[in-house]
Design a protein around this nucleic acid. Structure first.
Length: 352
DNA sequence: TCTGGGGTCCTCTGTCGA
DNA sequence: TCTGTCGACAGAGGACCC
């Protein structure tokens, strides 16, 4: 194949499939991985559960109404991470350039790989043999085509498309099919009378630019035409880390919020120190009972990682913000991350 | 129907120094 | 000395993804 060749590998209903390995008696039943709190959402639903209309990011309470016979399991991310490591080790053994995205998907740069389609057939078989997990594969000249192709025939899909074939196959598909065009953009496009990818590709650029600005408009049209030259990159640099919590009931009391913020800071800083990371920008996130989200941030002269440095800044940001309504979510974030050098590690040890 | 947690990236705006 | 401009950076909000 001339030019670039990219594959997108997407594990099918990953969390549910991993659960079924240790609970095989649940095979064939509608299984839903969701949190347990009153405000939790569905993380993954088995294909049996999806037939009842249950889907990811749906409130768990609604999923229970739609599918009362469903088997609800609390997520066990440590277990899923281990399964993901297993799968990605197999992928990395087969392909040199692999970009892992989340726990359950990866882009593979197959440019220059002889017989890329056959190589992917072998990889799928090897993953299934070694882990008993199924996946879908999309292959194309770019990440964008590969991604949409892998989604096209799930589960156990295997779709190979050129850019032109992708344009034809998805011409009448809704704009939201393409990654990067989310619900808000779909709604705004609908306001312009643009419903499908072919319509988006054909709408006059000036008209689109009036609504979205020239850069965003051009990017939308590139996506609609499946034009994408973004590289498959092995390393994703971590730029921020955060911890947040949605309360079962909204909280008004500032003292209670401060206490919870302290716990979140402790959790965040434990993680940063373990990874030898630190950052200069401390931020808080507050979601009020009307679902409006507010952030406040402050950038320090030096990068920090310990709770005694992050905590006071976060608490001050919270007090200054002084939530005007009951709070449903509180979060803390450290951004501008860098790796600690040795001298600073020694200082951290002293602090600990 | 009532919306998690943990991320990235983009845009807009204000500030500040050259 | 004053004013305007420009770029860098920070902060806030939002869209989007898994």
């Amino acid at each position: 194949m001339a030019g670039r060749c990219v594959a997108h590998l997407d594990m099918d209903a990953f969390y549910v499939s991993v659960e079924l390995r240790r609970r095989p008696e649940l095979r064939g039943r509608p299984v839903i991985v969701a949190g347990t709190g009153p405000r939790s959402v569905v993380t993954t639903a088995s294909y049996e559960a999806r037939r009842f209309g249950v889907g990811s990011a749906m409130p768990a309470a609604r999923a229970r109404r739609l599918c009362p016979q469903g088997v609800f399991l609390a997520p066990d991310f440590a277990y899923y991470r281990e399964a993901s490591r297993q799968v990605m080790a197999i992928v990395r053994a087969a392909v040199d350039v692999v970009e892992v995205v989340g726990l359950d998907e990866a882009y593979l740069d197959l440019t220059g790989v002889p017989g890329p389609v056959a190589a992917m057939r072998r990889l799928v078989a090897e993953i299934e043999r070694a882990t008993a997990l199924g996946c879908s594969i999309g292959i194309g000249p770019s990440r964008l085509v590969a991604k949409v192709a892998s989604d096209a025939e799930k589960p156990r899909g295997f779709v190979v498309l050129s850019r032109e074939q992708a344009c034809r196959r998805f011409a009448e598909a809704p704009c939201g099919l393409v990654p990067g065009i989310g619900p808000k953009t779909v709604e705004r496009l609908r306001g312009l009378g643009v419903e499908t990818l072919s319509a988006l590709g054909a709408v006059p650029a000036t008209r689109l630019a009036e609504r979205f600005g020239p850069r965003h408009a051009a990017e939308l049209q590139r996506r609609a035409r499946f034009e994408d030259d973004s590289p498959v990159t092995e390393e994703r640099k971590v730029v921020s880390e955060s911890r947040e919590l949605t309360f079962d009931e909204d909280i008004r009391d500032l003292e209670r919020l401060e206490a919870i913020l302290g716990q979140l800071v402790d959790r965040l800083c434990d993680g940063l120190i373990a990874q030898r990371r630190r950052g200069r920008t401390i931020g808080i996130k507050v979601r009020l009972d009307d679902f409006s989200t507010h952030t406040r941030a402050r950038t320090l002269a030096d990068a920090v990682a310990t709770a005694d440095r992050v905590g006071p800044v976060a608490q001050d940001l919270l007090r200054r913000f002084a939530p005007p309504r009951p709070v449903r979510l509180l979060g803390v974030r450290v951004a501008g991350l860098e790796l600690s050098d040795r001298d600073d590690d020694e200082q951290l040890q002293l602090v600990l």
